[in-house]
Amino acid sequence: MIPSGICPANKGKTQTTKQHNMAFKGAIEIDTQKCKGCSVCIDNCPTGSIQLSKMVNSKGYHYAEMIGEACVGCSNCGIVCPDSVITVYRVKI
């Protein structure tokens, strides 16, 4: 099973660093065991919805995790991820 990339510590909290008024809402799932924490996704996220976890995976990498609810499902993180560990979901609202 692919472990969820959602850090329990952030569940329910609202991230307000960047507010986007778009017609989509998105979410990402990260294969945290395969993530190497390179941060290229974080650099490419327009809504500031990804951060490196304080936790490490079995390889010792601080893996990427989704934060907040600002994600619009743009897939930028997915396409730049060198290890293809990100799945992006999106709904129209």
């Binding site: 499902g73 990100i86 799945t87 999106r90 709904v91």
Partner: peptide
């Protein structure tokens, strides 16, 4: 969103 949304990238 994960449950009902479309997978737009995988």
């Amino acid at each position: 969103i994960k449950k009902h949304g479309d997978i737009v990238y995988r």
